[in-house]
Design a protein around this nucleic acid. Structure first.
Length: 156
DNA sequence: GCCAACGTTGGC
DNA sequence: GCCAACGTTGGC
C-alpha cells in the first residue's frame, strides 16, 4: 500500500471539513500541476494512505489521516467559468485535469514543519525538500512509519 | 508582503 | 528546442 502527502488549504478544505462531508469523502479538486495530476491519474490506488496536510495557513503541517477512495475522474471545476480553477483549454471531450476522491479517516495532532524537520528519518522527505511546491508527493514506507510513530507521541 | 524556487508560456 | 519573462506556491 502506497502512501501520499496531499496539501490542502484549510480555508478551502480542512481535515474537519473533510470529516464533516458526506461519507467523510471529498473530491480532490483544483490540482493544476501535471506531475500531481499524473500521480492521481496513474499511480494512486484505492486504499492508499493519505497524509492530509494543511498549507498556506497559520499552522502548516500534517493535520489528519485519509485514504484514496476512488480511481481518477475529471475535475469538474475545470469547465466552470466561475471557478478559480477554470481552464479554458479543457473541454468535456478533452478533460485535462483529473482527481480522486479522498476519504478522511481521522484528525491528528498537528505535526508542524519544525517537528518533521527534526526527524533524521525524514531528511529526504519530498515535502521538506528545498523549493518543493508540489501539492501531492509520495511518502516512502520508512517515512510513513516515522510519522505514524510521531502521531502516537504527545506534542513535544 | 517578501521572496526563493519552480512551472508554464511563447517568441524566435 | 531554447530560454527569458512571467505567474504561482507557500513558508516566513
Amino acid at each position: 500500500m502506497a502512501c501520499w502527502l496531499m496539501k490542502s488549504e484549510p480555508d478551502e478544505v480542512s481535515i474537519d471539513a473533510a470529516l464533516a462531508a458526506p461519507g467523510a469523502t471529498v473530491p480532490w479538486f483544483g490540482v493544476r500541476n501535471y506531475q500531481a495530476r499524473n500521480y492521481m491519474r496513474d499511480t494512486m490506488r484505492i486504499g492508499d494512505v493519505v497524509l492530509f496536510y494543511h498549507s498556506s495557513c497559520p499552522e502548516p503541517g500534517i493535520a489528519g489521516l485519509a485514504a484514496v477512495a476512488s480511481t481518477s475522474y475529471p475535475d469538474a471545476t475545470q469547465w466552470d467559468p466561475k471557478s478559480p480553477y477554470y481552464d479554458p483549454k479543457a473541454s468535456p471531450e478533452n478533460p485535462r485535469w483529473m482527481l480522486v476522491d479522498v476519504k478522511a479517516t481521522r484528525k491528528t495532532r498537528l505535526l508542524g514543519l519544525d517537528e518533521l524537520r527534526a526527524q533524521p528519518e525524514l531528511a529526504n522527505m519530498r515535502l521538506l525538500a528545498r523549493g518543493n511546491r508540489l501539492s501531492i508527493t509520495p511518502v516512502t514506507a520508512d517515512e510513513y512509519r516515522c510519522i505514524a510513530r510521531l502521531l502516537k507521541k504527545k506534542a513535544a
